[in-house]
Structures are given as structure tokens and as C-alpha cells.
Computed example of a mutant assay.
Amino acid sequence: MNEAVFQSFFLIFTGAAIIASLAIYGRQPLLVAYIALGALIGPYGLGWVQDVHLLSEISEIGIIFLLFLLGLDLQPQSLMTALRKVTVVTLISSALFAAAGYLIAHLFGFNSTECLIIGAAMMFSSTIIGIKLLPTTILHHRHIGNMMIGLLLMQDFLAIFVLLVLLSGEGGQINVMQIGFTLLALPLLILFAWAFVRWVLLKLIAKFDRMGEYIFLLAIGWCMGLSELAEVVGLSREIGAFLAGITLASSPISQHIALTLKPLRDFFLIMFFFSLGAGFNLGLLPEIALASVALGGTMLILKPAIFRFLLGRQSEKKVLAWDIGFRLGQISEFSLLIAYVAFNASLISVQASHLIQAAAILTFLLSSYIVIFNFPNPIAVSERLRRN
């Protein structure tokens, strides 16, 4: 094994074990500890881990597994019901968040294109934090779980559309033909996935369901295979993974597959949060500190309030509406991807890209604190709130 790779893994996971232990004793959330570790030993901190780009690419597998497992927990009928309930709320809230992001960016002197992209990045909430801090019993069996999943999925679809627009850009030019081709590819991919699962995978599972190692391999192969196919046809690997999970949800051993893959998912998610902290250039912080605090702070206040109002108008109970609002009160990992893609396409400056990243990290940290100390979650520091 390459010595640098082994050294990086040693520093990440040994460091994560140490800092996680300190965080638990200090009653701090683990997500915060992983991000702090990345900032501390990454290239802009002590510099012990240098190749953050490679680690970031590896850690994206965790997001793919997260969406695959999310799909495994959803029956298609339940998904359609949830999406029907949240479509209007998602569209209105996303427009309001985008408008607020645009206005704040404009106040700090960014140009129109940068303001549009910064606004677009504010529309979404974090699937990773939202689902990771939601107890499994609530996720699977409660109305709040269905509502949150529906909201996050609708936001993910919007995020993917935004990414399609940005990925079609070369030097600031948008390729409308490429966008149209990609949108056409989505229903074709869904049809292929459904047919392949029905006529191939389910038959293999039924025949060899007692061979645990084979089922484990088959599940990973299907997840990765459809993810890569989605990338080839112009969609994202994340949506391919989600479709792979949904199409397998009807299998009688879908929950067995989900339980088997959860440790693998957590392994890569630790790397994701580490690379998030390590990839931030601390040298640019003085230039964007005020703007990032204004942007992130506004989202932390605005998102719970807007979700509370819109869900309340939709006849949801007040307590439930506030619960969902605070759980979705952060910016999304998709926002980080939007910043990366837009910067590479020369649509935004490095300052605008880091503004999105700084605001996202700020909301990740503070939103995690809010949920962990006030709402039921699997890693709560209080026994009263801890739910698995």
C-alpha cells in the first residue's frame, strides 16, 4: 500500500477515535468532531494530511451508500405519497431561501451570476445530517420520517437540476441541449432499473438468499453499477444510488441488506466530514467571514421559521412543523458540490465558492448542535433525547 495513503488513513481514523472520545466526554456532537479534526490536521491546519482531493473523492462513496440505504427503506408507493404532500412546500421554501441568499450576496458586492448561484446553493438542506440525526424508529415508522424524506428528496431533485445546468457550462456558457438530453435520460434510467431488478436481481436473490457474502456483493455491485450508469448518461451518481435502493426496496431481504451496509456507509461518512473540514482554505476566511456569518446565520433562522409556517398551513401540528424545520435548518452537501462545479466552470470566483463552503460548514455545526441538544436523535448527549 502507498505509504502516504496508509498514513492518511491512520491519522484520520485514529485521530477520529481520539477526538470522538473527547467529544463524547465533553457532550459534543461527533459530526462537529470530524470536521474539526479535518481543519486541524488538513493542509490548511497542521498539514499532516495533504492529499485531501483523493480522500474527498473516496469519501463521496459514503454519500452514495447513504442514498442507496435511504432508497432501500422506501417503498415506491410510500415515496409517491410523501412527494405529493411536500411538493408545494418544497418549491415555495426553496424559492424563498434562494431569494434570501441572492439578496445577502448582492449586499456584499458579488456579481449577478455569483448571486444567482449562491442563492441556488441556499435552497437545499443536508440529507446526511437530516437522516443521520433522525432516529431509525422515527425514520421508518412515523409521519415525521415520511415528511422529512419527501422534503429532502424533492430538494435533491432540484439540486440535481441545478447541477445539470452548471455541468453543462463551459467557461460560463450553458449547454441547453445537454440539459434536455439528461432530463430525457432520467425516465429511461428508471425504466431500466425497474426491469433489471424484476427480471434479474430478484431472481438471483431468491435463488441464493442464504449466501450472505454473495448477497452483500450483489447489493454493492448493483448500487455502484447503477450509480456509474447514471453518471454516464449525465445524471449524478447520487441519484443512481437512490434509484438502485428504491428498486430493491420490494425485496424481502432489503432490510438485511441495509443492516449489512450501514457500517460501510459510516466508514466513508467519517471521511466525508473530515475532508469537508480539511478542504477549507483558512487563509480566505478574513475576506468572507462577515458574509458567511450573515449568510449562514440567516439560513439558520429563516429555514425553521419558513418550514414551520408552510407546514403549519398544510395542517401539520405545530410541534411537528418546528421539529422538521430545525432538522432541515442547515445548508446541504449539494451546496458544496454546486460551489465546486460552478468554480470549475468559471462561473463564480474563489471568494464566492468559499463563501458557500463557509456558510455550509457553519450551518452544519450549529444545526447539529441545535438538533442534538433539543430533539430526539441517535447521538444525543442527553439520555432523555437519545433514540436509536
Rank of each mutant, 00 (worst) to 15 (best):
R210K: 15
F196I: 12
N175G: 02
I190K: 02
A195D: 03
D209E: 12
L191M: 13
G180W: 08
V165Y: 05
F181N: 14
L191D: 07
E213H: 10
P187D: 09
F157K: 00
T182L: 05
L166R: 10
F161R: 01
F157H: 01
G212C: 00
L186T: 00
L153G: 06
M177K: 14
L167N: 15
L202R: 14
F196E: 01
I205Q: 11
A206S: 12
Q173R: 12
L188N: 04
Q178W: 06
P187N: 09
F181M: 11
F192Q: 07
I190G: 02
T182W: 02
L167R: 15
W194E: 13
L163I: 10
I160Q: 05
G180I: 07
L189M: 09
I215E: 07
I215L: 13
M211I: 14
T182R: 00
T182S: 14
W199Y: 14
L183W: 04
I179K: 06
R198M: 10
L164N: 07
L163H: 02
F181L: 13
F157W: 00
M147H: 08
I190T: 03
L158I: 13
F216V: 06
F157S: 03
F216P: 04
M177N: 12
A159M: 10
A159C: 12
F196W: 11
L186E: 09
M177P: 08
I179H: 09
W194K: 13
I174F: 13
L191P: 02
R210V: 12
F157I: 15
V165A: 13
F216G: 00
W194T: 14
L153K: 04
D209V: 11
A193C: 11
Q173D: 10
D156T: 01
Q155T: 08
R198P: 00
V165D: 06
S168A: 00
L163R: 01
L183K: 00
I215Y: 01
T182K: 08
T182E: 03
M211L: 14
V162A: 11
F181C: 08
I215S: 05
I179L: 03
E213A: 10
Q155N: 05
V200K: 10
L188D: 05
R210P: 02
G150M: 07
G212D: 10
V162C: 09
F181G: 12
